[in-house]
Simulated scan of single mutants.
Amino acid sequence: MPRPLPHRLVAEYLGSLLLAALVIGSGIAAQRLSPGDVGLQLLENAAATAVGLFALILIFGPVSGGHFNPAVSLVDAIFRGLAWRDVPAYALVQVLGCVTGAVLANTMFEAAPISISTTERATAAHGLSEVVATVGLLLVIFSLVRSGRAALAPAAVGAYIGAAYFFTSSTSFANPAITVGRAFSDTFAGIAPSSVPAYVLAQLVGVAVAVPLLRLLYPTQTTPAPTAPVPSTTDSTAPVTEGQVR
């Protein structure tokens, strides 16, 4: 049975807050630790985001699914995982969480709590990159979920996002909530508010592309096979089985 909606919303809010603090805070730290070397700054930002996202999904995934991303929540509802009536609430707390996380990151590094970014990112190449990044992220998540391998998702998502920082010119936002949140920090990871609509539109196009691909590649949901009983080392009559991962 799913957890009560208030519990899930708290998990999505906290996960989104920490995700934004992670992305923005590691960007600020990278900029200060490696001044003048943008490549190294990006590597540090990407590495921190990849491993941190892995941990956040492990923490909050069993409660809410660990979406932290309205695009993920939308596709989950399309495939009848998340109830449609819960999607607006999920999206709202994800955006609020990311904005709060931006304020937290700014404050932790003794910057103004709110500083509107001036980094313009809305180019055709960046838009295409966001489509590609979002499609890839959704394929990673829902190919695993629909093939009964959901337990691999935290590591796979972290690995994909870490790689996508480098193979996309946009550095792979792939998330409308984090896109909005990053507008509130005029730092290495920021995005100007004027660029936000183009990014969000590209991410929604990514959703529209990913859903038919997933239906083609994974037309049915696969249930994980039960783990075979393993004899206990302390009591040969008592089988020990692994717990199912939600």
Rank of each mutant, 00 (worst) to 15 (best):
A89E: 08
G162R: 04
P2W: 07
T168P: 02
G181P: 06
S64M: 08
A112T: 10
E12R: 09
F173C: 07
S172C: 15
T220N: 09
P193G: 05
L33Y: 08
A156F: 07
G66F: 03
Q203Y: 11
N69E: 05
R215H: 04
G243F: 12
A177E: 09
I57H: 00
A50K: 10
A11W: 03
L74T: 15
L56D: 00
A189G: 09
S232Y: 05
V51A: 12
P62E: 04
P2L: 13
T187S: 15
M108N: 08
A133C: 08
R246V: 14
P219R: 04
A122T: 05
G181D: 02
V87T: 10
V103C: 10
Y218W: 14
S185M: 01
A189V: 02
P239A: 09
I161Q: 04
G27D: 10
S26N: 10
V95M: 06
L144Q: 02
R85K: 15
V131H: 01
I59R: 00
Q203W: 09
R80C: 07
S117N: 10
E130R: 09
P2G: 01
I114C: 06
T237F: 04
F166E: 06
T227H: 15
L17M: 15
P88F: 11
V145Y: 12
A77I: 09
A91D: 06
Y199P: 11
P231N: 03
V207G: 05
A228N: 06
R85L: 14
Y90A: 11
R121L: 14
T237I: 00
F188G: 03
A21E: 02
D37G: 01
A77N: 05
E44K: 03
R246M: 12
H126C: 14
A20R: 01
S73E: 01
F167A: 01
A124Q: 10
I78C: 11
F173H: 14
V132K: 03
I78H: 11
A189I: 00
A50G: 14
L104K: 05
L22Q: 02
R3Q: 15
V93Q: 09
F60L: 05
G148W: 07
A159S: 13
A210E: 06
A151N: 06
V135R: 07
